[in-house]
Nucleic acid binder design. Sequence first.
DNA 1: TCATTCCATAGATTTTTCCTATATATCCCT
DNA 2: AGGGATATATAGGAAAAATCTATGGAATGA
Lengths: 318, 318
Amino acid sequence: MNFTIRQLEAFREVMRTGGISEASRVLNKTQPTVSAMIASLEEALHFKLFLRQKGRLVARPEAYFFLDEVKSILDRLDHSARIMDQIKDSERGSLKIACLPAAATHFLPHELAVFLKDKPEVQASLIMRSSTMIADMVASQQFDIGLAETPQSRQTIKTTEFNVVGCCAIHADDPLANEPFLTPKLLSGRPAALLFEDHETAIQQRRCFADAGSHLNQRFELQTFQPALELVENGLCYCLCDLLNAETHRIGVRGKSNVRFLRFLPGILSPISILEPAQRPQSVVATAFAQQLIARMSNLNLAQINAAQAAQHSPQLI
Amino acid sequence: MNFTIRQLEAFREVMRTGGISEASRVLNKTQPTVSAMIASLEEALHFKLFLRQKGRLVARPEAYFFLDEVKSILDRLDHSARIMDQIKDSERGSLKIACLPAAATHFLPHELAVFLKDKPEVQASLIMRSSTMIADMVASQQFDIGLAETPQSRQTIKTTEFNVVGCCAIHADDPLANEPFLTPKLLSGRPAALLFEDHETAIQQRRCFADAGSHLNQRFELQTFQPALELVENGLCYCLCDLLNAETHRIGVRGKSNVRFLRFLPGILSPISILEPAQRPQSVVATAFAQQLIARMSNLNLAQINAAQAAQHSPQLI
DNA sequence: TCATTCCATAGATTTTTCCTATATATCCCT
DNA sequence: AGGGATATATAGGAAAAATCTATGGAATGA
C-alpha cells in the first residue's frame, strides 16, 4: 500500500475527535488539508472509512478496526523514535572497555561512573588486561575502547597517544616532601619500590640514577604500582610512577592520604594510548566516552592531582 | 520524530544491499535520490547511521539496531495493509444475520455459503427469530442484516422491500399438477395445510376462497411452512405458500422432490424485507452480502425455482 | 594510468502538500 | 421560514518536497 505517516496521524486524530474540523485544529492544519488527507487515505485503501451523513463523518466499523492497527503502528514508531533519541544522546547502548591495571581499579571506573551518571540504559563492561592483550582485543573488535601502553602501530587499531609524565611518590612526613622537585641525587640511597626488572619504568629509573651517579636502593619489587603506593603510604619507601597511577591512587584512598606526588627530574614519560578499532565504525556511546577519556587524559597533571588531594583533606569545603 | 515510510524503506534496502547504488536500483530510484533520503533520515535522527569511509558507506552499530526497529515497523505496516486489503474485498470481517423461519433452514444458509466460499476470514453468525424480534435486533444494531416480514416503518431501520408472490405446492402425482395455474375453485374441498389462524397468509387464503365461493378444507394447522411442505411431499395435502418457502424447500430436498409449485390466482403477496440498521454505517462485508441478498430476492420467481428443481432430478446434466 | 564503482552535491523539474476562498448541507434558534 | 453557526468538499494557487540529470571526487583494480 501507499500510506504516509501523516495520513495515519490525521486519521487517528479524526477518529479521536470525531470530526475533521476538530482534528484539523489539533493537528495545526486547515480543515481542507485534513479532509484531503482522509480522502487520499481512503483512496489508498480503496474503500471508504467514513460515510458522509448529514454533513458529518460517520465511521464505518472497519474504521474502528483500522484505528487499532494505526494506533499500534504509530505507537511502535514513537517508541523507536524515543529509543533512537536516547541513542543519539548516548543514553542507550553498550560499552566494552579493556584497561591496563594502572587505571583499572579507580581511574577508569570513576570516569565511567561520571559518564554513565545520567544514562541508565547504557550497559557497560570493563575488564583489566595486559597492554598486549588489550591491543589484540581492540584490534579484533571485541572491545570498543582500550586504555593501554601504546602498542606497535597497526592498521586495525586507531590510537590516541599520551605521554604520561612520571612523578615521585613520597611520604608526607619525609623531609623531601617539601622540595619543589626531586632528582636521583636527592633520592640517592633511599629505599625505593620498583616494578619487575624488565618493565620499562624500572629500566628508565635505573638508567637515570646511573646517569646521575646516584645510588638506587631497590627495597621492593612489584607487579604494579598500586601496591607500591600502598607501601609509600606507610612510609616504607618512595616510588617513581606515572600520573595515571598517581591519579588512580588518589581516587582510591578517598580520604586523607600520606603520599605526596612531586615533580621528578629528569622527566620520565610513559607512552599510554586510548585504543579504538579502526576497521569498523564506533558506536555513538563509545565515541562519546572516548572523547571524555581523551579530554581527561590530556588534562592529567600534577597540579590537578595535588589540588584534588588537598580537597579530600578538607571535604567540608566541597 | 519526522520519519517518512519511504525513508525507512530506503534505509532497510541500503542495509540489505550494503550500499546506496545497489539499493537505488532495487527501489527504482536514482542514486542521488537514495543518497538524499539517507541523509535526511540521519538529519531526522540527529546522528549519522553510516560513516563514509573510502567512498563507501559503513554502518555504525546503531544502524543495525535501528534496522531491527525499522524492519519491525515496516512488517507491521505491511501486515495491516494486507488485512485492510482483505477487508476491502470483504474477505475479512464479521457478519451477523437474523432471519425468519421461512429462509433460515436452507435459503439463507445457502446464500451465506455461496458468499463466504472464498472468504475464510469472515466470521458469520446466523439466527432464526420471529419477524418482530428481527426488526428490534436490527434496530438496536445487534445484527447487521435481517430478513423478515416488512415491519412498521421506523427511523432506525433501513428496509429493502420485496413482495414475494404466493404459489401453490401440490404433489406431483396429483392431476392438478398439470394445470397451468391453480385457483380456489380448482382446489375447492381438497385437504389443505395452513398456518395458524392469525397468520396473514391464512387470513388471505380464507378470504380468497370465500370470495370465490370455494370450500377451504383445512386438514392441517402448522407454525411454519416447512412441515406443511413435508406433508405435501407425502401427498397428504396441498399448501399455499410464498416463493421464499418454496425455494427453501427446494434447496432442502436436494434430490428428487414430489412437490410441484404452481402459479396461484388470485395473486397473494407476502411483504418481506431485508433490514439494515439505519443509524450506523454498515461494514464492507455486510454491504456486500446485503447486495447479494437483494439481487437474489429480486430474482426469486417460479420459473427459476422449477428449473432448478428439474435440474436436481437429473443431476448428471449439471 | 585508465576505466570503473561508489557516493555527494548542484540545479532543474515534477510531484505533493498545504493554504485560501468558496460552495453546500445540516442544525439550531428565533 | 430565515439567519447564523458548524461541518465537509472542491477548486486553484503557492510553498515545500521529492526526484531527476549532470557532474565531481575518491578509491579500486586491471
